[in-house]
Simulated scan of single mutants.
Amino acid sequence: MRYLYAPSFCFGFIGLALWLIGYGQHSLWWLPALLLCAISLSFLAEALLPFQPAWNQPRQDRWRDMLHAGINEGLTVCGLASLPLLAGVLPASHLWPQTWPLWLQLLLTIAVADLGITLMHWLSHRSALLWRLHAVHHSVRRLYGLNGLLKHPLHQALEALAGTAPLLLLGMPPVIAALLAFAIAVQLLLQHSNVDMRIGALRHLFAWAPVHRFHHLKYGQVGDVNFALFFSVWDRLLGTHFRHPGYRLAPDDLGIGSQPNYPDAYLAQLLEPFRTPMRASRPCPVPAALRSLEQP
């Protein structure tokens, strides 16, 4: 299970969606049902084989995370529904490779969107204004599949724009856009999973949980690594790829070290980026095993 979970989860759900929607010509409404199945399987795997058992215990955050996930995925559906309207506004384009196999079109879409989302993510750790929105996602104090969907709606919109704008200008079909949105949701579940998975050499290609967990370290700039959503190659190009096989994250390694009192309630998190800047505490002391990663 440790070795098979990540590739089976990723390729299984995305492949099934591609087959049902693309080749089986089934309704797009199959995608929300598939996503619920993915969330359920994620919960089951985390219960059977947790990376940190403590992260399976709710910290009065389960309903908040469900609200974030439900509302953000609902906004994604609204965005997909608006694509025909956007097509009428954007200049007509015949650049989309419609003759390619559907799986190859989806792979191209994922690669282009991944680059845009990764760059927006990278900028969100360097811009004070963007960080205020992105901090909602980093306020989590435990990692499990569902909180991969925990984002401020405005920041999710910015990431979506960064990832899809070039694709929309190329004339991306609505079916491919829907499959892309589903693939991103599946990847976020897998990237933040609490399953004690083993991915071996696949870590050089895919930014799954063993790679991404280091990004959520609460120790100042130590966590400014592994920004990619799908493919680790972007972090190698940015110089932000990091691997520390000898360090196993502890249950209390996560969060925003300089803002330990970041609000937990859903509405408070939506309003926090617009409040008077909170006085930041001193950064958390960096564990000895990670001190070599501190930025000057």
Rank of each mutant, 00 (worst) to 15 (best):
L90W: 01
L267Q: 11
G223H: 01
F182K: 02
A280M: 12
G255E: 02
L179K: 03
A160Y: 00
L133T: 01
A185Q: 14
P277I: 11
P91R: 10
P277D: 12
C37L: 15
L102H: 03
R132M: 02
H215P: 08
S281L: 13
F9S: 05
A228D: 03
D196S: 10
L123E: 06
A207Y: 06
E159H: 10
P296D: 04
L133W: 03
Q57R: 15
L35Y: 13
L254D: 04
L205W: 13
Y144M: 11
D61R: 10
Y262T: 04
A33H: 10
L229A: 11
L238Y: 07
Y247K: 03
G239H: 09
W103Y: 13
G223M: 03
I184D: 06
Q156K: 14
H192C: 10
H215T: 04
A162M: 09
S40D: 11
V195F: 11
L271I: 12
I71Y: 01
Y266V: 06
M120Y: 09
A250N: 14
S127V: 01
S27A: 13
P260Y: 08
P101D: 02
A17L: 06
F227S: 00
L4D: 11
H212E: 08
N147H: 03
N72I: 01
F51H: 14
P32N: 03
D224A: 14
G74Q: 02
A178Y: 00
H152G: 00
G12E: 02
R279F: 08
W100P: 07
L188R: 15
Q57H: 13
M66Y: 11
M66W: 14
G220Y: 02
L129V: 14
P287L: 02
L67Q: 10
P210M: 06
R132Y: 05
A135H: 07
V225F: 06
L290P: 00
I117K: 11
W30N: 09
W96L: 03
I21G: 05
P174G: 04
R248L: 12
F43E: 15
R2I: 06
Q191L: 13
R59C: 05
L229S: 11
L31G: 10
A33Q: 12
P101M: 05
G145E: 02
L237T: 08
G145I: 06
P287M: 01
A280N: 09
E294Q: 14
V286A: 08
N72D: 08
V222A: 02
G148V: 07
W234P: 03
A250H: 14
T240I: 08
D65W: 05
F206G: 08
P277Y: 09
L18N: 04
P91A: 11
F43Y: 15
D61I: 08
L146D: 00
N147Y: 01
L161I: 15
W96I: 00
I256N: 02
H215L: 07
S124Y: 08
W96V: 01
C78T: 05
